[in-house]
Design a protein around this nucleic acid. Structure first.
Lengths: 240, 240
DNA sequence: GCCTTACGTCAACAGGGTTGACCCAATGTG
DNA sequence: CACATTGGGTCAACCCTGTTGACGTAAGGC
């Protein structure tokens, strides 16, 4: 059922509407479908209709729907990490990795909400994990620590990205209501019951903003503090 | 459709099997169903069967499935934070807060996965935000910094908890496949193409474990390092 | 030009959420 | 006590979903 046959060996026969199917075409069409009509628009039948083929033809390329979702997730990772080369500064490199992954997810918020928590087991993900762990090894961490630290790092990045993507995937009305909540509901509170909120009252509208970079920076600070070898460049000297 | 009629005014008529329905009973039964028969057990038909009533009777109490999920989420939040009182050690208190929220989500992963990214604006949430920001103010942070730090903290906690809940909410087959991926796929890789993964090969099965506590500890370390005033008690001396 | 078989197609099944009609009994009123 | 009202439990039905097995056709190797 699944794509056990190598891509080049396939006997690609045009569908009734003349389209030549391929894994890439299916994944790309699924991403477009989700981006245009929401993550609930991704169904085998709808995808078949969008591709111009019988829905069950997809089962010749993917074992089941979950297999397709994993392929979509790996495509997002691959696009996000395309052309990335780690530099000398491992902290800066991990930071760029975080920002790239986040940007990739935010580019497809509805698909990200579907695929963010999965292990794709495919090449793009494997490549990214190798790069990230390599950076931590270069920082002097022992293998066991490097693996654990990378897991904490990437889970934080992916979790935050998924949260932001889920927020962007909300219908505009609910999204704005959530954003306004910090301005409206949290402004007229009993000072006795909520002293801390009253003290920081003027800062609360900012709670609707993203905490992604702040959280990543805090995590990287802790990692740098734990690293056996100190960072090569502490003064921001070395360019790109 | 929804529960516009006050609970006490309801004309509660026993079902065919003699059960008296109520919002509380339905929510409780839904939680029990999820806990006993796995995450995929929550469906209107199954819930009706478990309650001993026609499935569509639920629509007299909740507008739709989403409405029911939100009611469940509200119960979870209330239960998780019930009885929590912050102690003298602000780091330890934030840590307990994180663990409580996480435990509440993991106890009901399916419901949590569906409602984790919503802003409730209800008293439990407001109370929690006040407590958390109060702890950061007691650490010496200025109002603006306290608000930003709390946002980074709670977003990390909620994002990680949602990720873990989403994983547990997966159908058992997909969940096990994701877990096995780190043992199977990642073991036979080309050492030249993936040098870092090869170096930490023996540590990779642990990648299926949770990074929640590691991530929270790293974040709290960074917060403690940034705090203007040092922690009051470093040796665990003061009793409750 | 044959033979094999990959793969697109079709019909069907089991499960899902949701709706509208139906009707009984619980409740408010006299 | 009796009546009118209506809340709410029940039932049948609709349309959606993922997935499977049979079927046949055309593509590629020889």
């Amino acid at each position: 059922m699944s794509s056990r046959v190598p891509e080049e060996r396939r006997r690609r026969r045009p569908t009734r509407s003349g389209v030549l199917l391929s894994e890439d075409l299916i994944v790309g069409t699924a991403l477009r479908l989700i981006g245009e009509h929401g993550s609930e628009a991704l169904s085998v039948r709808r995808l078949g209709a969008a591709l111009g083929c019988d829905p069950t033809a997809l089962y010749r390329y993917f074992h089941d729907t979950d297999d397709l979702v994993l392929a979509i997730a790996d495509r997002i990772i691959g696009d996000a990490m395309a052309g990335f080369v780690p530099g000398d500064d491992w902290v800066a490199s991990l930071r760029e990795m975080a920002l790239r992954v986040r940007a990739g997810y935010l580019a497809h918020p509805r698909a990200a909400a579907l695929a963010a928590h999965r292990v794709t087991r495919r090449t793009s993900e494997i490549q990214a994990v190798d790069t990230g762990i390599g950076l931590l090894l270069s920082a002097g961490f022992e293998p066991a620590a490097a693996a654990r630290m990378y897991l904490a790092f990437i889970d934080t990045v992916l979790s935050h990205a998924a949260t932001e993507a889920a927020f962007l995937a909300l219908p505009g009305q609910q999204r704005e209501a959530d954003r306004r909540a910090w301005r409206d509901v949290y402004q007229d509170l009993d000072p006795v019951a909520y002293p801390a909120l009253t003290a920081v009252r003027r800062e609360l509208p900012g709670m609707a903003d993203s905490s992604f970079e702040e959280a990543v920076d805090l995590l990287l600070e802790a990692l740098a503090a734990r690293a056996p070898t100190h960072r090569a460049s502490t003064g921001g000297s070395s360019p790109g």
